[in-house]
Amino acid sequence: MSVKKRFIAGAICPRCAAMDRIRAWEQNGVRYRDCVACDFFEQAPIVDEAVTELETRVNREREEQRRDTLQTVKILDPGKR
């Protein structure tokens, strides 16, 4: 069985800085990446844990804005038309 290797659009090689030369594939529970322009090669186990968003300045500010946002209530008079 042949493993399908795919190029990652816009990826930059961490070793030679060539763009669009990184391939990625998965095999036997391991994720692989390599560069066709140099000898860069990387492998990492595939972890099936739920990924949670890291807390950053941006998402922390969004949460604070949601709490601090004032909402205006308009009271309608049913007698006026």
Rank of each mutant, 00 (worst) to 15 (best):
Met1Phe: 13
Met1Asp: 13
Ser2Trp: 09
Val3Cys: 04
Val3Met: 09
Lys4Tyr: 03
Lys4Glu: 10
Lys4Thr: 12
Arg6Lys: 11
Phe7Ala: 03
Phe7Leu: 12
Ile8Pro: 01
Ile8Cys: 00
Ile8Trp: 01
Ala9Ser: 05
Ala9Val: 02
Ala11Leu: 00
Ala11Val: 01
Ile12Cys: 03
Ile12Met: 07
Cys13Asn: 01
Pro14Thr: 01
Pro14His: 00
Arg15Glu: 08
Arg15Asn: 10
Arg15Met: 12
Cys16Pro: 06
Cys16His: 01
Ala17Gln: 14
Ala18Leu: 01
Met19Glu: 15
Met19Lys: 14
Asp20Asn: 03
Arg21Ile: 01
Ile22Met: 06
Ile22Gln: 00
Ile22Phe: 04
Ile22Asp: 00
Ile22Val: 07
Arg23Gly: 01
Ala24Met: 15
Glu26Val: 11
Glu26Ser: 14
Gln27Glu: 15
Gln27Asn: 14
Gln27Met: 07
Asn28Arg: 13
Asn28Lys: 12
Gly29Arg: 05
Gly29Val: 11
Val30Ile: 15
Val30Asn: 06
Arg31Pro: 09
Arg33Cys: 13
Cys35Ser: 00
Cys35Asn: 00
Val36Phe: 03
Val36Pro: 01
Val36Ala: 02
Val36Ile: 14
Ala37Gln: 12
Ala37Asp: 05
Ala37Tyr: 05
Ala37Gly: 04
Cys38Asp: 00
Cys38Phe: 01
Phe40Asn: 00
Phe41Ile: 09
Phe41Gln: 07
Gln43Ala: 09
Gln43Arg: 14
Gln43Gly: 09
Ala44Leu: 08
Ala44Met: 15
Pro45Ala: 08
Glu49Lys: 09
Glu49Met: 06
Glu49Gly: 11
Val51Gly: 05
Val51Cys: 00
Val51Lys: 15
Thr52Ala: 07
Leu54Tyr: 03
Leu54Asp: 12
Leu54Val: 06
Leu54Lys: 13
Leu54Trp: 07
Thr56Phe: 02
Thr56Gly: 10
Arg57Thr: 14
Arg57Gln: 12
Val58Pro: 00
Val58Thr: 05
Val58Tyr: 09
Asn59Ile: 06
Asn59Trp: 05
Arg60Gln: 10
Arg60Met: 06
Arg62Pro: 02
Arg62Gln: 11
Arg62Thr: 06
Glu63Ala: 14
Glu63Arg: 14
Glu63Phe: 05
Gln65Asn: 04
Arg66Trp: 03
Arg66Asn: 08
Arg67Ser: 08
Arg67His: 09
Asp68Phe: 02
Val73Lys: 13
Lys74Cys: 11
Lys74Thr: 14
Lys74Tyr: 10
Ile75Cys: 08
Leu76Asp: 07
Leu76Val: 10
Leu76Cys: 06
Leu76Thr: 08
Asp77Gly: 05
Asp77Pro: 02
Pro78Glu: 04
Pro78Met: 02
Lys80Glu: 10
Lys80Leu: 13
Arg81Asn: 14
